[in-house]
């Protein structure tokens, strides 16, 4: 790898990266053995402080979060298309525009509410949660200007969606709402910021109803991702505030897949059900899917890479997995 000499000297600034030297992909992050510390909070206080400082910038579409704004339509497209493909009730003739209508959707780590607002506009009964109270304030303030989203507005009319924000962690929400509370759980660009990704995934997965969906997006732990998201975006171009990303926290698609090969939700009997991904080799189309997201600079837009374009999954990617019906 030609890029390694470039990266090595810079590593020191990002603290210990045990076993995560770029290019030597480690699976340590998401080992699938049962961890007693699962119930423990996954929130990283430094990360919360970092994003709170930025919260006022969430809705500056040309600023710090420009890339995230432009990524949003692609995330929504992925969610929409995946749910459409898996639409059980073929008689209902649901269109893509309606596929989220009336669904209970949780957005974990909603930030300024970029994704939450879109989900609500698509008709989902949306709950956005974030561990930073200033993010929740910004998100609420932003949505209150929009009669479409503001719950106090009488103008919601025929739209079935709703939007609520709550300052809480996914663990506390799980304790409060109980498992299997949502048709869809989303957590976009969050996994790479949490302390205990296994525990985090565990909590998210528990909140999903049987045959419900879990959507994640994050950054792969590859030299390419390091180069783009940290070296280029934070250091060279200074597009993104320093300290936004920590390389060692990046998670590879294979690791997510591995997690859900062993993760089982309890069956109604209480006994562990079947794992979310059961197909021996590649996950079945109806079980899970990874799709790369590629930024096309000359168009200024993100595109969803075609299925099984592995090179495109080397940086930003979307991951979808479905809880079995049992």
């Amino acid at each position: 790898m030609r890029i390694r000499p470039l990266i090595r000297p810079l590593q020191f600034r990002f603290g210990p990266v045990a076993g995560c030297i770029p290019g030597t992909v480690s699976r340590a992050n998401l080992s699938t053995t049962i961890d007693p510390a699962l119930a423990q909070s996954t929130i990283n206080q430094d990360e919360i402080a970092h994003f709170s400082k930025l919260s006022a910038l969430w809705w500056d579409e040309r600023g710090e979060f420009q890339m995230l704004h432009r990524m949003n339509p692609v995330r929504m497209k992925f969610i929409r298309e995946k749910m459409m493909a898996l639409e059980d009730d073929l008689d209902a003739l649901v269109t893509e525009a309606e596929v989220l209508q009336g669904r209970a959707v949780l957005d974990v780590g909603c930030g300024g509410g970029l994704l939450s607002e879109s989900l609500a506009r698509m008709g989902a009964k949306t709950l956005g949660i974030d561990a930073s109270s200033s993010n929740i304030s910004i998100a609420s303030l932003h949505a209150s200007a929009d009669p479409f989203l503001d719950s106090s507005s009488s103008k919601q009319g025929k739209r079935k969606g709703s939007l609520t924000y709550k300052h809480t962690s996914v663990e506390d929400l799980l304790a409060e709402y109980g498992p299997a509370s949502f048709d869809v759980v989303c957590s976009m660009e969050v996994l790479e910021h949490v302390d205990n990704p296994r525990g985090f995934l565990h909590s998210c997965a528990q909140l999903v109803k049987p045959s419900g969906h879990l959507f994640l997006s994050t950054i792969a732990r590859t030299p390419l991702a390091y180069l783009i998201t940290i070296f280029a975006a934070e250091d060279v171009m200074q597009r993104v505030s320093k300290g936004t990303h920590t390389y060692s926290k990046y998670v590879n698609p294979g690791e997510l897949e591995g997690f859900f090969r062993t993760y089982r939700s309890p069956a109604p009997s209480g006994a562990p059900g079947r794992p979310w991904i059961a197909s021996p080799r590649r996950p079945a189309r109806t079980e899970a899917e990874t799709r790369g997201m590629v930024y096309v600079p000359w168009n200024g837009e993100w595109v969803l890479a075609p299925r099984e374009t592995t090179w495109a999954e080397g940086c930003n990617y979307l991951f979808w997995v479905r809880r079995p019906l049992e």
């Binding site: 579409e61 040309r62 704004h69 432009r70 949003n72 339509p73 929504m76 497209k77 929409r80 893509e96 525009a97 989220l100 607002e117 879109s118 989900l119 609500a120 506009r121 698509m122 929009d146």
Partner: peptide, 12 residues
């Protein structure tokens, strides 16, 4: 934009 739940007034 509507198909992605976008705010049709937004720059993006």
């Amino acid at each position: 934009a509507l198909l992605s739940g976008g705010d049709v007034g937004s720059y993006t």
